[in-house]
Design a protein around this nucleic acid. Structure first.
Lengths: 145, 145
DNA sequence: CTGTCTGCAAATGGTTTGCACCATA
DNA sequence: TATGGTGCAAACCATTTGCAGACAG
């Protein structure tokens, strides 16, 4: 409990943040890696992961961990919502008017100290609606995601 | 697009669902595997995965895919909310009074056809509040989860 | 019998980590 | 120059999959 670590501004770190800020597409680490490689051809995927981790700890980025397989990242730190396409997995910001959460009951849900919440919508994106390809692999049309 | 598959009721499938229904702890596949093994010692983890997948497709179980690493499963199919402990990752049901989502704007968020939403709370569970162990690895107390 | 399901083990795929070298402060 | 950061590759770990034998219908 003595000294604070010194944090260095490396080129990689800067470029990663810059590229993330340019995007509003909530890239996965590896998508971002590909983008960043255009400016820093030798950068490794590991470095991208380490820096995204670093940036979220610093509050400069946000890990989405939206339902799905890969974690997605977002440079917009303010609290906002997302929509995920159940077919192609893309994630967009949800321009949903902020609505009042019942902060009354919120302070103590089942004994938990509530720190926040995340609201995720899921549905079918414009793209996939057009090329409406149904999965239809089974008799039951449930999705249950 | 001709015939429906025949679905068989195997002992494994039955036991997996039964055990899942007994629980309200949102087990991961491997947690459930361990439980089921007490009744079916030879069952494999792969079978548990395959059946959980099957059961969610049939609407008998629900994949939570709550933020975190592992997918968690729930036999309660009705729409309800969850709280996740940011420290120990356990997941509980959130006994939050249902509140009205702005269904007005909901039908078309950014061109998406909205199928539903998921609301997740995060916080610190009673257990972890007591044994309040702070992470404190950095100067910045952000969590950003 | 037929075709689905299981157990097993190997393969995936996203993410993390150990290590030696590099570069920021 | 000290030490945090990087590149590389191997390690991890949850989940998926191929295959041969088992079993429900």
């Amino acid at each position: 409990m003595s000294g604070h670590k010194i944090h260095r501004n490396t080129l990689q770190r800067t470029v990663i943040l810059e590229e993330l800020q340019k995007l509003n597409s909530h890239p996965t680490a590896s998508e971002l890696h590909i983008l960043v490689q255009k400016r820093l051809p030798k950068i490794s995927l590991g470095t991208v992961y380490r820096n995204l981790e670093y940036l979220s700890r610093r509050g400069l980025a946000q890990k989405l961990t939206i339902s799905g397989n890969e974690t997605r990242f977002d440079a917009t730190v303010e609290h906002h919502q997302h929509v995920r396409c159940v077919q192609c997995s893309r994630v967009d910001d949800a321009a949903v008017p902020p609505f009042a959460l019942p902060h009354a009951g919120l302070q103590d849900v089942g004994g938990y100290k509530i720190l926040g919440y995340r609201l995720e919508f899921y549905g079918v994106c414009p793209e996939c609606r057009r090329t409406g390809s149904e999965s239809g692999e089974d008799s039951d049309p449930h999705d249950n995601q």
